[in-house]
Design a protein around this nucleic acid. Structure first.
Length: 205
DNA sequence: CGACTTTGACCGGCGC
DNA sequence: GCGCCGGTCAAAGTCG
């Protein structure tokens, strides 16, 4: 884990815009909660908002192999849990995966866009509109809850996410995304498709 | 029967 | 070099 800090690519905007397809649109998130709390008080969570803090975004908190910045922000449990996740990428330079799957994920580290956030929820899995397949679960040191590993089920997409509940505050789930979806959000498309068809139909007059 | 989850084994990186 | 730990694989099991 020693080494230079990984350059963290800032995550895309959470709300879809014309220039940014809705890959990262998180449904049911009030716009008032789209900004993470100040770094010096990450433990102060607005109880009225489910989706509370986008901590590791916009460079405020960086996911690195070193001690994460958030630890200095008086929230060591989350810092440990997030910071201990190493970025291992099983990418073939051309295809995105190593052919030897056995070695996948254990090869040279590479930089990928990663970001994490907390949700206050009874469910570990938040419905972000994408379909995920669980491929592993591990007990994590200093945490009574295991960490679950998910991969996007889209055949061309290699986005992963890790989900873990905080042991200090069991109502908080930390979700870490790694990579960028290269396809639209399925649920969003499901919702939008009939609308778009109707618009297309109406515009033909 | 396909999609998905569970779970033990395996492997690489890192600290000591 | 060794042991610990995190991340992934893949066979077996489960579900709809």
């Amino acid at each position: 884990m020693e080494g230079q800090e990984l350059p963290i690519t800032p995550p895309p905007p959470l709300l879809p815009t014309q220039s940014n397809p809705p890959f990262f649109f998180l449904p049911s998130i009030p716009s008032s909660s789209l900004h993470p709390p100040p770094l010096d008080s990450p433990q102060v969570l607005n109880p009225e908002i489910d989706w509370v803090s986008l901590l590791i975004s916009s460079g405020q908190v960086r996911l690195t192999d070193k001690k994460p910045m958030i630890e200095s922000a008086n929230n060591s449990t989350m810092a440990e849990n997030i910071g201990s996740t190493s970025t291992t990428v099983n990418e073939d330079p051309e295809k995105g995966y190593y052919k030897d799957k056995r070695k996948a994920g254990r090869m040279k580290k590479a930089t990928r866009p990663r970001f994490a956030f907390q949700t206050r929820s009874a469910d570990d899995i938040l419905d972000d509109g994408y379909r995920w397949r669980k491929y592993g679960q591990k007990a994590v040191k200093n945490s009574i809850y295991p960490r679950s590993y998910y991969r996007c089920t889209h055949h061309t997409c290699s986005v992963k996410k890790q989900v873990q509940r905080l042991s200090k505050d069991t109502s908080i789930v930390v979700t870490t995304y790694e990579g960028i979806h290269n396809h639209p959000c399925e649920k969003l498309m499901e919702t939008l498709t009939p609308l778009l068809k109707q618009m297309h139909f109406l515009s033909s007059f």
